[in-house]
Design a protein around this nucleic acid. Structure first.
Lengths: 228, 228
DNA sequence: CCGTTTTGTTTGTATGACAATCATCTGATC
DNA sequence: GATCAGATGATTGTCATACAAACAAAACGG
């Protein structure tokens, strides 16, 4: 019980993170969850009051998010949550379509056996999560899965890029996890990736990763743009 | 003469860009040219005095550059110009090795004939620049060449990523242009890319682009890390 | 109803202030 | 002379306030 308590308190106690980082995380999460929809205008004074921070700190956080591409400049009239057009989405998925195979390739090159094993285990957890139906659990588990691959690939720069890119399309993907057909498809695709990784088969793994991205793309895209 | 004068004054006259953007550009250029070497600590007060700006604006610019990865956090002790390790450099070139072929592919898909023609023309200019020997001219011309490809590819997001990635490795590449062997090699590689593009041959163009990145990688890497 | 002026809102920039943190120097003690 | 504690200083993090500039919307006059 002491463990549980410590675990739940640790993140909050004596958080030495600069305030602007907390602000960034807060805003990022809000965008990720849809609390801040694309196109929403961000008025500094309002945010200051809601977050209870000074304009100075808030603006620094905004600049950082702006540089990440999540917020976009609106003339001289402040910032808005970026609206990802269909063309943007296609471009993002094209990029992911080459970055994720690269990550998988580097995972095969650099990850020791125990990490491969752990990845396989995590893929089983993910499979169960897909079947269980809990959307939040799916998202969390999938994130863990991806983190393992990216960390194992020993390419933090690509990891960073992918995080930013996926955040950009999070508004598109939000409702996409729910669809049952896509779920079983995802399971098969992930199985293929993991299987190829276990065999240390780069070509197959890259192909599987690319296919997975391509399918995610049509799923997210049809979800966000075709629906009327 | 009026033209020359206007050209050199234009960037300064009535620039409605926010001050922080000017600061960013100034710092970026300083890093690019080596005036600010990797590892240099950035002290806010000093920079304020040198640039004649307030700490508020400066800090916002710093946050933005930090988000771009050019500046890195040093504990709680301010910012430094990022030092690209050998591993980092390899990773960056791996990423460029998949992004640049993608861009070339999208150029073939999306660029109209007149842009292809203009690109070919620009490649001739670049070739001449390589032979002339003027380092600054080479860099400027090459940048123009790249800009054309990236713009023609209609993928501004990838363009943006590439700009940031290449800026990161600019300290490595700086002395690399000078070497004569690399120059003639570059000419051949770029010719191959352009030729494939003119033929609208995706496979060949991607292969040529990948090869070009790979060769740049060994050149920059041997230059920066192997030399003692 | 349209064009102009006024007003209000919001961002951009600057200044001054203070707390917190970390580095370095200093001095006392053994 | 070495080591440790405390004093000192430099630097960042955060805040409140102020004002100019740009822009939007409302008010006004024709």
């Amino acid at each position: 019980m002491a463990n549980l308590l410590a675990e739940s308190l640790n993140p909050l106690i004596h958080e030495p993170a600069p305030l602007r980082n907390k602000i960034m995380n807060s805003l990022r999460r809000a965008i990720e969850t849809g609390a801040l929809e694309p196109g929403t205008r961000l008025v500094e004074k309002d945010l200051c009051e809601k977050l209870n921070v000074s304009r100075t700190s808030l603006r620094e956080a905004l600049r950082q998010l702006q540089a990440e591409g999540i917020l976009t400049d609106l003339n001289n009239r402040g910032l808005t949550v970026v609206t990802v057009t269909r063309a943007d989405a296609e471009n993002i998925y094209r990029i992911r379509g080459v970055l994720e195979p690269l990550i998988v390739e580097q995972f095969i090159e650099n990850a020791p056996d125990n990490e491969v094993k752990a990845l396989k285990a995590q893929s089983e957890v993910l499979k169960k999560a897909y079947l269980s139906g809990n959307a939040e659990e799916i998202v969390a588990t999938k994130r863990d899965f991806y983190d393992r691959i990216c960390t194992g690939a020993r390419n933090p720069i690509a990891f960073d890029l992918l995080k930013k890119l996926t955040l950009l399309t999070s508004p598109l993907r939000r409702s996409s996890v729910v669809r049952k057909e896509r779920r079983s498809q995802s399971i098969a695709e992930i199985d293929a990736i993991v299987a190829a990784i276990v065999n240390r088969d780069k070509t197959a793994a890259k192909a599987a990763a690319e296919k997975h991205v391509a399918n995610s793309a049509v799923s997210a895209s049809s979800n966000a743009f075709d629906a009327s």
